[in-house]
Every structure is written in structure tokens, then in C-alpha cells.
Amino acid sequence: MEFLNSIFVKPFADMVGAPDFLLQVLWEGLVAGVLYALIALGFVLIYKSSRIFNFAQGIMVVFAALTLVGFHEKGVPALLAVPLTLLVMFILAVAIERAVLRPLVNQPDLILFMATIGITLFLIGFGEIIFGGENKVMITEQLYIPTGSFEFEPFGGFVSIEQKDLTAVIGAVLLVVGLLVFLNRSKMGRAIRALGDDHQAALSVGISLSTIWVLVWFIAGVIALATGIVWGARAGVSFALEVIAFKALPVLMLGGLESVLGAIVGGLAIGVLEKLFEIYWGQPLLGGNTETWFAFVLALVVLLFRPQGLFGEKIIERV
């Protein structure tokens, strides 16, 4: 009885009892969710246009953030360092397309997936040689991101919202809106979607495979830089950031591998739910640190009922 009570009653009583704390937890979860959604978006873009499950997205986040900080350390002004980093990400996209993807066209999905793990390892080693392994501070102030916090007192309690988190959320929303407009309205965006639907048909109407792949990897690089700045401002820049790539995987499962909307909804849902679970069930009952697996187990349960995720394309199999 005591046990059931601690699972089914007490957490909800705690939530109602301290609504300001609940709000704070929800906000924290939401911010984390925005970041998961951003990384998942990078995955989805590449998967949609090339059927490559890009494991390197996480390390691209780290790499972009480290490059930005590295440029700034060399004395480049922060606002100039951003376009320079974008240039580096573009060169990286071209290099990956030339050296890895082009020779592997038409190989099975699994081979391409392994190749992206190869890219991940290469970038980890390469990045550590160039930038060193130590933790660095993101140049938040130099990029004119406000660092104060708003404080509210709802229900007689206390809720604090950091301005950089708010900036992150607004920035992410703008990025997503821009991306959707680009994908749905521009010629290039339509080419990306056409390539996602059918490679051969797209090629036969004159869409260049290699141009689009470079473009897609570059957009993934831009998203990686945005994620890197935001997450770096919260937790510092180091190779430990790479683990957040794993957090994007259950988001993909939940939302579906092909769906931009799914990545956003899935990201927000997982960010909020795992925070709630950790605070109200994980820490009191299970000894904490449940965030490492909760999202995966949640996604697994959802997948048992919808094997293609919430928003994924229905898989029709023919023999």
C-alpha cells in the first residue's frame, strides 16, 4: 500500500502542493526538449533526403561549438567567428560528401550508418587533437545573448526563467520556421523533398544528388552550430556534449524518422516527461539519474503500439 501510494499518489500530491516548483520543472524540461528537438531535426533532414541515419550529428554539434570558441580564442571577433564557423561546416559537408558518401552511393543503409559512426570517431580524434580535450566556456556574452534571468512569483511561489534559455527557445522556433519555409517554398527545399521521396525519379528530372547532399549536410551543420551555442551556453563546450546525440535518438523513434513535426513534438514531449519522471519518481524511488534511459524506454513502449513512431510514414512492405 505504502509502495503504491508512493508511485500513484504522492508524486501528484507533490505536483499540486508546489505548483511553482512544477512550473520550474516543466520549463527546464521544455528547454531541454527544444535542444533534443534541434538535434533530432538535424537527423531527420539528412534521413529524409538521403536515407542515411546520421550518427555524426552529435559530434557535429560539438565540432561546431568548439570551432566557434576556437576562432574566438584566436582573437577573431565573435560576430565574425560565426560566419567563419559556418564556412568550416560547409567545407566539412563538402568533404564528407566527396570522401565518404559519393563512394558509398547505393550501399545498404547499414553500411552508410556505420560510415557515419566512422565519421564520428574521426571527428572526435581530429577535434581533440586540434582543440584539446578540456572543457571550454561558450562565448555567450560576446554573441550578445542576454544572461540574466526573469523571476516570477506565481501561486505565491518562485519561478526563475533564464534569459539565455528564453533566447534559445525563441532562436529554435525561428530556425524551425525558417527551415520549414525553406523546405516548402524554395526550389532547393523542394529538390530536397523530391530526393527524399524517390532518388531515381529526382535524378531523372535533373536534380543533382551531390549538390543536394552537400546542401543538406550543410544545413545539418547550421543546426549543429545553433544547438552547440545554446547547449554550450548552458553546460560548457566539451566532448561530453556528444552524449546529447544519444538523447535525440529516442526523440526520433517517438516522432518518426522522416517527420520534421515529429522531431519537434517528440523532442518537447521527451524533454518534459523525462524531467517530470526524474524529479517526481526517479529521485525518490529509483535513486536518480533515470534521465539516461527513461526516454529510450518511453519510446520503446510507444513503438510497440506504433512501430513507425507517432508521425513516421506508414511502412508498407511487399514481397
Binding site: 570522401a99 565518404v100 563512394p103 558509398l104 550501399q107 545498404p108 553500411i111 556505420m114 560510415a115 559512426i117 566512422g118 565519421i119 564520428t120 570517431l121 574521426f122 571527428l123 572526435i124 580524434g125 581530429f126 581533440e128 587533437i129 580535450g133
Partner: peptide, 20 residues
Amino acid sequence: EHLNTMIVGATIIGFLILEP
């Protein structure tokens, strides 16, 4: 160690291209 990580990554890509 870093060189090792990098070379392992490159080796994997190399082998996948050479003989999947």
C-alpha cells in the same frame, strides 16, 4: 589515443568503401 580514434574512424570508412 586521439590519433588512434581518428585512424580507427578513417579505417572504418576506408574499409567500408574498399569492401563493404
